[in-house]
Design a protein around this nucleic acid. Structure first.
Lengths: 210, 210, 210, 210
DNA sequence: AATGAATGAGGATTCATTCAT
DNA sequence: CATGAATGAATCCTCATTCAT
């Protein structure tokens, strides 16, 4: 008899195929770039034929847009959730250090989506870029707020351009996907180094270990 | 100097056309990515027809390889020359700050080549990557040496993983091409912020203004 | 026979299209030569668009290789089958005469493939040539054996270089595709003349009519 | 002062360059076929640049036409001269045997032009073919006459279709360029075999050695 | 929900040819 | 006479997309 709503639920066969396609697209997109992403290659990886993709996405660009968008959206969710879980009294600088860790771990361990989004931001056509840009701004707002809170508590050194510092820091984190591999040094080392650098940069005094 | 206008010299017609093609390719490559770089678009920008490119380069990949290679090679030359010009007594940390400035200025003001090389490093096929990788290693060696010298003079803080710090720093610099535009904040501000951050990170004491 | 219309059998739609492409390629190849064979022309003749060929063959050269190869292979099958059907007691010279007839009829009446293979043997690049050469050697072996059997029965005239004679004879047959057309003289006349010549050349006595 | 006619005579520099181009074209044409003959390759072989060819020939097709035409014309001259030098009393069959030798030697030893003309007769576009066809008919007329003379002296066997026999014989000779190489068997052997075959085919009695 | 078969737009590359020098 | 530089017309091939099944 008529199957319940499960047929279109998040675990329906269709939903799972759709997920497989997105995963495959994120993987290829992060490695080959926007123009280098072939639907046949995505299909191969998702273990189906290219035309089947059209059952789940109206076009190649729609598929890519979804990858690029959720690359940032997932990151935002992850970092926001991490921050929300912190005790009230966590200091602003500590919050930044923890956000940096969340960013790095999500980018490097969890998500081809984020790598895809980061690497292709500049290459994607305007049409796709728009929705992603909104998301980027929203994610940027989190960081902006973190820095502002740090500034308000007077804990930042004078003469440091806040917005430049923020962008440089995010760059250091984003770029990690270009060079980090698990076999050269553990992710923990990178995370700790980044946090140590953050504390030295933003702390108003000489820096000590945690 | 009675030479007859250097038939194949750096100013010959051929050499100038070749340069125009390279410039155009660097421009497109940095914006569209490896797979997205169309010879027709390059040709349009260089003000000739696509097949004319083949008079100057054996193939699309050869053209791109040259752009990617000189993107790093030029950067290396620029930074190496800057460092070579410093007085003997310049401190290791100061040398790093100055190298960072040279890197940023070359990347952001001078060279589409470098942006192209940086952005496409991960997308380019192995064949092209090889020569560029050599150059990258050579450039990386400069930074490695700078950090080692800083470490030797005992001026670095304990418990800082040198190689992670170096890669994070270079990431911050490389990523600047993704967000910096002259109309939001002057390059000088970015350079000073980066240098200030470097001094705070690497200095072995509480940080003071320049 | 309850089989569902043989999805990939020799009569499937795909198999029929593939055959149409091969036929068209053989036709063009035999008339325009290797370098002169355009995929668009083949496609026109096969009544589809050029890129559709790539659904059935990996490349132009693969298509041509298959034509060239089966040009010889079909000939070999045809001649071998004809010889196999002869009564045991057929004399060696008579076998040669009959093989010549089979060769001529296959070349002139049946197969663009064979004409294509014969005419382009010298022009095709090494890669394609290899497989065809194997087949040629196998076909040549049939003729070599026929001549050796004739020699063993002592029926050949003295002082006739067997291998030269064989090659000259095959040349006479192969070349027929360059000049014979059905409207000048019937094929039967050519066949009978060729057979008469063979009997006179190889018979050890004065020559008589059949 | 004004140089005499020698400037444009058969040994002028221009004439020699022209000859080099023709030789190169004949070489390439005989090996790569009409469509496969590239002006750059011809130019390479003739030791000049492709555009220089246009000083000597109005177009690629004109160059090829000249090669194809003189391939046959030279053959005709050579065979005609050989026949003309024979003593009056030479028998018709002997004249045919001698013509065959002249044909084989010219084709295999002397002339890429002839090989080019023979191999490409069927592939060349109509425009080029026309002039060559006239020449072919003229050359064919020599052979036709030879056979008619043999027939008139009553020396041919009955029931042999003269024109078929002639075409088959010429085919055997023409095809030799496809298989003969000096390293497998001496040309003399091929010539003698061909002549022996001719005498057995056309002689009205059992065949004896020369 | 998916595939086999095909198409049309475009992209790199080749090549005869031109032309100023 | 010849070449350096360039062009425009093809040609092979790739790829997103369509559609009947």
């Amino acid at each position: 008899m008529a199957q319940p709503a499960a047929t279109v639920g998040p675990d329906s066969k269709s939903a799972r195929t759709r997920k497989r396609i997105l995963d495959a697209a994120a993987y290829i997109l992060s490695r080959k770039g926007y123009a280098g992403t072939r639907l046949t290659e995505v299909a191969d990886l998702a273990d189906l034929q290219a035309p089947a993709i059209y059952y789940h996405f109206p076009s190649r660009d729609d598929l890519i847009e979804e990858v690029m968008w959720s690359g940032i959206a997932d990151m935002r969710d992850h970092v926001a959730a991490t921050l929300a879980a912190l005790p009230e009294e966590t200091s602003p600088i500590e919050r930044i250090a923890i956000a940096a860790e969340a960013h790095l771990r999500h980018e490097l361990q969890i998500s081809d989506y984020t790598t895809a989004a980061i690497r292709n931001a500049a290459q994607v056509p305007a049409k796709i870029r728009t929705r992603q840009l909104d998301e980027e701004i929203a994610y940027g707002a989190i960081w902006k707020k973190l820095f502002e809170e740090a500034a308000e508590t007077g804990s930042l050194p004078d003469h440091l351009d806040l917005s430049s510092a923020r962008m440089l820091l995010l760059g250091a984190l984003n770029w990690a996907s270009e060079w980090w591999t698990p076999d050269v040094r553990p992710l923990d080392t990178v995370v700790q180094t980044a946090q140590s650098m953050i504390r030295r940069i933003l702390g108003d005094e000489g820096v000590q270990e945690i």
